[in-house]
Amino acid sequence: MLEIKNLMVFYENALALNNVTFTCQEGQITGVFGPNGAGKSTLMYTISGIILDMKKTEVMRGGERITILGEIQFKGEDTTHIKPNERTRKGIVLCPERRRIFPESSTLENLKIGGYLATRQEAKKTLEYVFSLFPALKDLKNREGGFLSGGEQQMLAIGRALMAQPKLLLLDEPLMGLSPAIQSRLVQAIKEINERTGITILITEQYAQPILPIVDHGYVMEKGTIVLAGTAKELTDNPHVKAAYLGA
């Protein structure tokens, strides 16, 4: 479904992604694990196309020069140069790092904005699904986003992404800064989304432990390069992964 070929991203002369090649199989959950600064977020920005908007802003400001090389294929189509909002229309939806919900809009408005491209019927159906997935949001639907707790904001961010009718859902560090109890609830929800709707999911995390059980296929990234790849079981058994990412 998603094929990344020889992707390289430079911020000025710093190499953020170095010859990254990997694939996401349709209907599967793929995990990318790596420490801070490994290039996980750059990878997400590049797949979702947000990096093109960042590049445009930098060019106008006369700031950092961002260079993107390589190819991103989504469903057999080269999407490397397609605008980010067009990619959303094609079904690539990013749920960004640190949630980035709209703080001054209510929970319900956040979800409605997420459904900007959806038809009225799709929006209504998805809204019901989001509320069944995260019942807490239903009770908070008139509360402003900025007043939700971290866990509620993350649920809202995932809900908002679902409203955009994704075919490929990109989750950038969805568990960051949350308590273990909320983490495990979110992991369950992510698994449920994948099973119920068949949406392909690409997920990044620093710490692999909570996510690995639901991942079909995983990659380990360090300093912009993929250093390890394998099924969830292969990664779990790998001594390097055990030491660095599973805390064993």
Partner: peptide, 27 residues
């Protein structure tokens, strides 16, 4: 600004441009 799609998208983009783009809004 509270009850139409265009109005909501105007408020969204004022709050977070990148998150709005990810919802398919053209800035």
């Amino acid at each position: 600004t509270h009850h139409t799609k265009v109005g909501l998208s105007l408020r969204a983009i004022a709050q977070d441009k990148h998150a709005s783009i990810m919802s398919g809004i053209e800035p």
